[in-house]
């Protein structure tokens, strides 16, 4: 499965336009396992105007798939910075234990959308949200929602690695400490487990008490992933996690995302279409605050239904 997906894009090192062109022409890829959730994903609403939740439930039941396969749903999500509307009626389903990639040109609203999912936009002054974001069916914008609890369930990794000016150990232990875990042995176990999952443990296990700021950029970003994993989130939001990294570190992060999807539902914003193609199961294309198209990654990259999507992935704009 993993290798299949990798082979989707053989020329990842080539220039973007070349690669995407290759991609659109390598159409005949055998659908490997038609019974997996990949198919369920293809039934998620693709056009914003549809009544999305109803449709996704209908389609799920029509295929005999329990709705538990959908982790996050947004319904007519609109977002405003002051009077500027940044998102218009985004309706999208995010399947559990899959990687959903959000692509699109700069300023198209994909990061804003991502930050709506764990209410990180709450902190920005003069912003307004309309519509629903449902996590396991519960609206996260419902009054009385415990935002702190929400963010423990929906972790986030940022574009620029942002380790705290503390030791490596304390960085990872910070989340668990917030939940009241203070036992040294317990913290040690969580820290090691998280670092291991973030594929960083081997590099830092002898210097857990060193300052996190001394790590390289790629290591810092994996530390931030470990830090996010330490609170045992169900969903991991990643906002261009590899955009500031060199190719080797990027590969490591991508490999990591691959492994993490076994346990977590991942939503990743990326500028890089090859990256979306390499790591994701489902891809959504954003343009000017709208979700133009969403579908299984392979389908979106090979047979997009919307003209704008095709133009974007073939490099005609953006």
């Amino acid at each position: 499965m993993v290798m299949d997906r990798r082979s989707l894009l053989p020329n990842s090192s080539k220039k973007q336009t070349v690669t995407t062109y290759t991609m659109t022409t390598t159409e005949p890829i055998a659908m490997d396992d038609p019974t997996t959730a990949d198919d369920a994903i293809s039934r998620v609403p693709t056009v914003p105007v549809n009544p999305p939740i109803a449709q996704s439930e209908n389609s799920a039941s029509a295929e005999g798939l329990p709705s538990a396969n959908v982790k996050l749903v947004t319904r007519n999500l609109r977002f405003f910075y002051g009077s500027v509307q940044a998102l218009s009626d985004i309706s999208m389903s995010i399947p559990v234990n899959r990687v959903t990639a959000l692509i699109g040109p700069s300023g198209c609203g994909k990061s804003t959308f991502l930050r709506c999912l764990n209410r990180m936009n709450d902190m920005i002054e003069k912003t307004r949200v309309e519509g629903d974001v449902l996590l396991d069916g519960n609206d996260v914008y419902k009054p009385g929602t415990d935002v702190v609890e929400l963010r423990k369930r929906v972790g986030m990794v940022f574009q620029k690695s942002n380790p705290f000016p503390k030791s490596i150990f304390e960085n990872v232990a910070y989340g668990p400490r917030l939940t009241g875990i203070n036992g040294r042995a317990e913290l040690q176990e969580i820290v090691e487990k998280s670092l291991k999952r973030a594929a960083l443990l081997d590099e830092v296990k002898d210097r857990l008490n060193d300052s996190a700021l001394r790590l390289s950029g790629g290591q810092q970003q994996r530390l931030c992933i470990a830090r996010a994993l330490a609170t045992s989130p169900e969903v991991l939001l990643m906002d261009e996690p590899a955009s500031a990294l060199d190719p080797a570190s990027t590969t490591r992060i991508e490999d990591l995302i691959f492994e993490l999807r076994e346990r977590y539902t991942i939503v990743i914003v990326t500028h890089n279409m090859q990256q979306a193609a390499r790591v994701s199961d489902q891809t959504g294309f954003f343009y000017e605050g709208q979700l133009i198209e969403v579908g299984p990654t392979r389908q979106l990259f090979t047979t997009p239904t919307e003209k704008q999507t095709e133009d974007y992935i073939t490099g005609r704009f953006g």
């Binding site: 764990n118 990180m120 902190m123 702190v148 609890e149 963010r151 423990k152 972790g155 986030m156 940022f158 620029k160 942002n162 380790p163 705290f164 000016p165 910070y174 989340g175 917030l178 939940t179 931030c224 830090r227 996010a228 609170t231």
Partner: peptide, 15 residues
């Protein structure tokens, strides 16, 4: 102190 540090903490469920 960079905003990103604050967001990092908030994203972990810090008050």
């Amino acid at each position: 102190v960079p905003r990103s540090l604050r967001e990092g903490a908030y994203a972990l469920g810090a008050t």
